[in-house]
Amino acid sequence: MSPLERAVPNGAPVPSPGTALTATDVRVGYGGGLVLDGVTLRVPAGRLAAVVGPNGAGKSTLVKAALGLVRSSGRFTLLGDTLRAVRRRVAYVPQRDAVTRDFPITAAQVVEMGRYPRRGWFRRLTEEDDLAVEAALRRTGVVDLADRPLDELSGGQRQRVFLARALAQQADLLVLDEPFAGVDARTEAALLDLLTELCRDEARSVVAVHHDLRTVRERFDHAVLLAGRVLADGPPAEVLRPELLEHAYGLAPLRGAVDEPDGRVGLTVSTASPPETGAADRTAASADGSPDR
């Protein structure tokens, strides 16, 4: 049985408590064409999962649809339940560009936002919240930058701050949209260690849109290969097989030229050596990763 068949089971996956994210026959269209055409997947809970695929594959769209940020047909479950039921247990870190640039805010204030859903938007924060904010900043290694304006931080420092916000939410599911874009290799490794810790030691689940196939292979527990629909969904070693990658990247995008709605630079090319492509892409991401100023 090929991964392709296994990935798209007959009928709908039954939502169960053991899953972080499931999608059943999800369709999303922008303008004329469909970006996601019948996506069905099942990411088990407690895993560090990556959503990978070429530019325009609909990776961002998939997580946004799962979080109710773009309209979709079909059905999602998060942590085995509807979004409405688990909203407070889900943390979201959007793509860099989705956050307002040049906003007057300090690192600590960003992390503090992670406490609002839990504490209530109109209630005073307590000492517990302050401690959670500090612990989160410490854990991502930016506690010294707490009072610095966000627009004075580098790309890597910013991503640490946003991850700290997700930690402060004490969520069971973290959804990260390209968390390592514009981040240097050292920071990426540190953040990956942290995410691994969250999954292994604290039984949290992480779903990250990512496109460095090498790190997916080395560090992630689960991968979803996307190209308008799910080509494979399972352990990285099974998903990132040459024939599947060739199918995803070589013939991409399915259904005509569909631009990634966010205009991110994604993978362009080179079916011959997918891992290399990933590395090249990472360099490209770093090159445009100058601090937002």
């Binding site: 979080l67 407070r88 870190v93 959007p94 609002y116």
Partner: peptide
Amino acid sequence: RVLRTAAFDPGFAAVAGV
């Protein structure tokens, strides 16, 4: 808080229930 969060990071605010 609501206005600041939504102006800064609309996606986060929406997922957080605003």
